[in-house]
Write a protein that binds this DNA or RNA. Sequence first.
DNA 1: CCGGCAAGTTAATGGTCGCTAACACCATCC
DNA 2: GGATGGTGTTAGCGACCATTAACTTGCCGG
Lengths: 198, 198
Amino acid sequence: MTAPRTPTRNRRAEILRAAAELFAARGFHGVSIEDIGSAVGVSGPAIYRHFSGKEALLSEILLDISERLREQGARLVTAPDAPAAGAYARAALDALLRGHIDFALANPALIRVHERELDNMPEPDRRRVRRLQRLYVEEWVTVLSELYPACPPARLRAATHAVFGLLNSTPRSAGELPPEAMAPLLHGMAVASLDVLA
Amino acid sequence: MTAPRTPTRNRRAEILRAAAELFAARGFHGVSIEDIGSAVGVSGPAIYRHFSGKEALLSEILLDISERLREQGARLVTAPDAPAAGAYARAALDALLRGHIDFALANPALIRVHERELDNMPEPDRRRVRRLQRLYVEEWVTVLSELYPACPPARLRAATHAVFGLLNSTPRSAGELPPEAMAPLLHGMAVASLDVLA
DNA sequence: CCGGCAAGTTAATGGTCGCTAACACCATCC
DNA sequence: GGATGGTGTTAGCGACCATTAACTTGCCGG
């Protein structure tokens, strides 16, 4: 009765978190299975009791990140009805920004892995991640095209990628400002930068 | 007389360019010496005729990038005299932006390597690159502190990193827009985003 | 009590990789 | 024209690494 609950799930989650942290710090090829094992107090091949291989780890990490971002975006955009055409889109953009910023500030390591390690994924899953990323970008483009209807889609997409670069700077500027100061700064900078699309 | 000129220098430069491209595409640990060799039509250990090892390649690439950026920044900031206090700083920021954007658009692979591979460098050189990067950031902060004197330095530094993220999005949004359209877009977005520091 | 399963362990295997060794070619200089 | 040095080549060595095999241990249902 006092026995350890959910024995497998905890280890799985532990391993995933440790692997993400290590991948963020040293890159996929710079981390060995042994490294990941000893990071959770277990040595080497014990990982294979929970995952089919090293690539499976990366796949699960990246799929989880992409799904969380995409789902968050979809939730916020599909949600309410339209008070006034422009005001709704403005609120949706605000929500997208807030969601992305919160995620980036809370999980700088995940953002780093998401940015860097796509090409090290096995093929079937890579396509899925790319699809999710594309859908997420399209959420942004849809909202932005409502705010800036005169702007061609290619320009909206380029601006979206630029804003992602801005928001994802969190792993690089770690420690410069506390998160409570960083969040509104990034929000303000993003909104202002997008206003040149008008 | 029709013999190949500057035999060593060309090979060296060729190898550096190929290595940078490969490092950008697959990451330092994802590229083998054999890969680099065959990318320049030479096989494997021939690289060691020109470089002492794989890490030396990365060192030379990163030092070159950091020095080019820093030198460019220093040149533009130290250059002219001050017409009006604010107008000069405005021009200096414009020059910094133009320089960084031109570099990023012309060399997306180098930007990628510069962003990602610092930790794979051997220690003595890593410190030098970090110093150059810090100096480059300080150029920006100095100019910005003139434009936004009320803004605390930590905030200026965080904003600078964010703008770098925005400008360095070029490798990710490749092909969305032609460079002639991308450059003014990034310039405008950066200027606008920095204006929230006022 | 006991068979089975989940989750570890260490040892071994096969492959890749960085790097060195040993040798070959060819221009140039005395 | 022979020594020299720069630039290649292929073969081999030692290290590391992902993965598998074989074995241990402890919990838990019957």
